[in-house]
Simulated scan of single mutants.
Amino acid sequence: DKQLSAELIQYLDTHSPEDTTQDVVELNGKNYLVSSVKSTYLDWHLVDVIPLYQILKPISLSQNLFYTCMILLLVVGISASILLYRNVQYPIQKLIKGLRRVEQGDYSVRLHSKNQNEFSFLFRRFNDMSHQIQDLIENVFHEKIRAREATLKQLQAQINPHFLYNC
């Protein structure tokens, strides 16, 4: 390019290069990296001109790739967090709420799961446990009632002969 060469020669004439230089120069409306090295044997300067966008293109490509990867990692991280919350944290909270209700004396609580995983197994075992506790408490309650009825019958049996004897 003759026009580019003319502008480069004009630049080099106004800025006398030292032994070794590297400058970013605007030539022909574009930025170029101008490198020059002085030859000690010939007393000449070896000049290399490279468009700046050619040097920066791989860097900007790597930068764009880095940003893309960071955004992708952010999306994957958020997705993993949501999945962990939904599949782990939520069932654990559900189990804790059920245990608190059992602790307060509500043995009729039952937990149900839509998925077939480890938590559904825990929920089934929790339901079995609360059902067994409810049955045991009902059995104890019925036994107490029967014991009171038996005590009342025994007292009535003691009272009836005395009442008949006194009459």
Rank of each mutant, 00 (worst) to 15 (best):
Q116F: 11
R125A: 14
M70T: 05
L74W: 01
P58G: 00
L61G: 03
Q89Y: 08
L56C: 00
Y32L: 05
F141S: 14
P17V: 08
V76T: 10
L99D: 03
S60N: 14
F66L: 06
D1Q: 10
S130F: 03
I9K: 13
I137K: 13
N166V: 02
C69D: 13
N87T: 09
D43G: 01
R110Q: 15
R110C: 06
V25I: 14
I59L: 12
Y67T: 05
Y41G: 05
K57H: 07
H45D: 02
I159G: 01
S108E: 13
P161G: 03
T20A: 13
R148M: 04
A6N: 11
N28F: 07
L52Q: 01
S60L: 07
H131Q: 14
Y90Q: 15
S36T: 05
Q89D: 05
S35W: 00
H131D: 14
L65K: 07
R125E: 15
F121P: 00
D135E: 15
V76Q: 06
L111E: 01
L73G: 01
P91L: 05
S108C: 05
V102Q: 10
D13Q: 15
D23Q: 09
F119P: 00
H162C: 09
A147E: 10
F123A: 14
N127G: 04
A80Q: 06
E149M: 12
I92F: 12
V88Q: 05
A157W: 07
Y53Q: 12
S35F: 02
G105A: 04
T40V: 10
L61D: 10
R101T: 09
E118M: 07
P58R: 00
V75D: 03
Y11H: 15
K153N: 14
E18Y: 06
S35C: 04
R125Y: 07
Q93T: 11
I50L: 04
S16H: 12
L155A: 09
K97M: 08
E149S: 07
I92D: 06
Y11G: 14
T68V: 02
Q132N: 12
F66E: 03
Q3T: 13
S113E: 13
F121W: 04
N31P: 00
V49G: 00
A80P: 00
Q116M: 09
V109S: 10
K57C: 02
R110N: 12
I96M: 05
V109E: 15
C69Q: 11
D48V: 15
A6R: 14
L33R: 07
E7M: 12
R86V: 15
R110M: 10
F121R: 09
K153A: 09
L12W: 05
I159L: 14
K153W: 06
I145G: 01
K144R: 10
A147K: 09
Y11T: 09
G105R: 03
R101Q: 15
N28I: 06
T20E: 12
H45G: 02
V76K: 04
V140Q: 09
V34G: 02
Y53P: 01
L83E: 06
Q116P: 03
Q134N: 08
I92V: 15
N166Q: 06
E26L: 09
V140D: 08
T20F: 10
P91V: 04
F119H: 00
K57R: 09
S79Q: 07
H131T: 15
S130C: 04
Q104D: 11
S16M: 10
Q93D: 15
V24T: 13
L111W: 00
Q132S: 11
N127P: 02
Q134D: 06
Y90P: 01
D48E: 12
L136Q: 13
K153S: 12
